[in-house]
Design a protein around this nucleic acid. Sequence first.
DNA 1: TCCATTTGACCTAT
DNA 2: ATAGGTCAAATGGA
Length: 803
Amino acid sequence: MESLIGKNSDADEVHLNNSIISRLTPEIPLCPKLAKLFLQEKNSLTTLPPSFFEHIPVLKVLDLSHTSIQSLPPSISKLCVLEEFILRECSLLMEIPPEIGAVKNLKVFDLEGTEIMYLPKEIGKLETLERLRVSLSAYADDYKDRNGIEYIIPRMTISKLTKLKELSISVDPEAKWWEVEVLEAIMHDLLVLPDLKTLKLCLPTTKLVQHFLSLERYQVPIFSGLWNFRFIIGHCEQLPFSVQLDMEENFLKLEKCVKYMNGEGWMDENAELIRQARALYLRRHWTIEKLSLFDVTRLKYCLLMECNEMQTLVHQEDIYEDRNRATNHGEDAMLGSLQFLAIHFMKKLQRISKGPIGRNSLSCLRILALHTCPELTSIFVGCLLDNFKNLTEVIVEDCPKVKSLVTLEATSWSKGPFLPNLKRVSLLDLPGLVSISSGVCIAPQLDTLLVFNCMSLDYLSIMELPRDTKVIKGEIEWWDALKYGKLTWNSVFVQFKRDGGLMDQLAEDTNSLQHFLELPMVLTHPDSSLQVDQNSSRDDHLWCNYQYIDLTEDWEQVEPLQIDHNVPSFDEIQDMSSRKILNSDDDTQSQYDGTAVGMWESPFPVSGKPHNEDTECDFEAPNHKDASPKKRRVYKRRKKLEVTTKMVIEERLDDGHIWRKYGQKEILGSKYPRQYYRCNFKLLHGCKAQKQVQRSTENPSVFVVTYFGKHTCPRTLHTSCSSLATESASTTFRIRDSSTPTELASTISESASTITDSHFQLATSPQTLDYTNKFFQEEVLHPSFWTLEPGEGLPLNSLHLQI
DNA sequence: TCCATTTGACCTAT
DNA sequence: ATAGGTCAAATGGA
């Protein structure tokens, strides 16, 4: 560091990315001109020397994101002209020193992803602060016990920040201190912030939502003055395994986002919030039968998960209701603004829409992704084919009842080709799929057709797909078995490589939200038909991430996809690389590279009732490893391929926590040994969690995992959870894709000739389907299925896993 | 005494 | 050097 800055003490901007510096030297030379200092992503950076900030008097921007610093030296008080202080994802940072109050010119203070326990009251001195983002950790509960709840977010602190334009407070979902009283106090503080335009809050109960909606300043609801918001209503345990957590994270960064969990009831009190939302993430609504129960006319992005009563999204009758309401648009368009729709784990979903729902319904939809909907039968219904004018991509995965993308009905429809903008079709794990589109001509502009594990699809017809489709990607076994169409498209067939990269590839290919973000922008205006702006490049698109645009009006001008300001974007990276990078010995951009997508678990909640929080299983969010996600990934990838039963067990049972095996024992009366694991943080944090894993004698494809004790280790680095989880997913895949199904079957399972799981139904015997169905019915993999054992010290829950 | 569980030294792969 | 599995021996509850 010394030499680096020493050599460049005239620099006004210094980036130190990915260099290996575990400790900055205590003495740093004077850098009188340094205005911007970027030290992101050095996990190894743990300590800043006490006097570190004394010599950089004109520093305006300081970015220490993704470092492992544990504290800030008091010398931060010397940064009297600092305007931006970014500490994102500094997961070991638990305290902000009171000296922060001396940083008088601070405008942006970003603590998202840190584990701080409380806000020092000195924050209130930062009168110029315009953007404040904090995330308070579960440790705040301990802090409360020691100091009292009023010290976590001291009263009258936020209300002093009168210049505040953005306030974001994330809290650990487990936090107990985040309750009505605290929130009401914060809301009260909001009333005196005249410029507040962006607000991100967790609202644990519906009552608090109501309270928030009723907040008024000069008789104007605070809510109506917001340009952007993110509200997380209710709570749920985190997705048990690796179900596209990256997607979830990114989704929450979309403009006007509401995440609503564990909802219940018809007349939903949160409807107003949802009405104003552009992005809705609905998870585990226990009673909703159709999405159109909410006013979703303005919705642009929608992510639905585990709403087990939902059978369809929109119903014919809604249209007539809507007409009666005489909306301003005067059009009968349900979901007429929707551009992105992803659905996961919907137990009863049968179809997207029922009956004729108006010619503009779903007409803006650009990406449709359907994952693990066991009852889904219809996707594009004949009479609605004309609606999907702007659909560019469709992904269907693990929907065993889907026979074809198109369902013909008795009603007549105009002649094709339909789906004029469809460019990519991805079909994965659809054992029932026998035809692409039931003979209907679709997708005249198709670029890529991806088929994976759809072994009943043995017929590709030029009636359905254009002759000039550019790429058809699939497994060689499937292509070889194809009865028709091989000749037509042989030149464009691309075989999946079985080289360990396959699952990463598939994960990328099905990362619908990522694809969406990469699409060019669109103009949406009620009066103009949707146009794709062909001239806007990816960079333009991402540039928009940094713009605040007032979206509150009904009349929406050019409305670019808006993502949070600090979403890492490609242009950010490019920007960085074009600047002076003083030291860069590693070109990884772990944070930004392609996200792996886990697609192999199926966490249907038990239908009917929300869980009782107290008796709920102890499953916790996947934990992180100390290495960076990227590092881990590379590490695992490098592991020699060794397809053994043992390895599959280990990989498959990776539940996101880091376990250390400490023993194995033959158990009387069991064919297979029992393995003992303890949480890896036992020594470091005294974590008491343990688990035992044993293959079932009765059904060798089932592993019984019994958990003992709660994890008490700190859950740092939320962001890496997903990466870790997806990592485990991808390694699981890696093992599988390294062999043919047959090889695997013989290796993995001695007795049964099948390997089954929710995602890969590789084998073809009837047994496979039986298992699969059983899996769906019993929700074997979902934590809520785990049975609670009576008595103290007994297992907290057991889990049956099938491989 | 039996046998499940845990310990800790040791080994191996990265 | 470290993480993490292996294995024999120790521990402890019924």
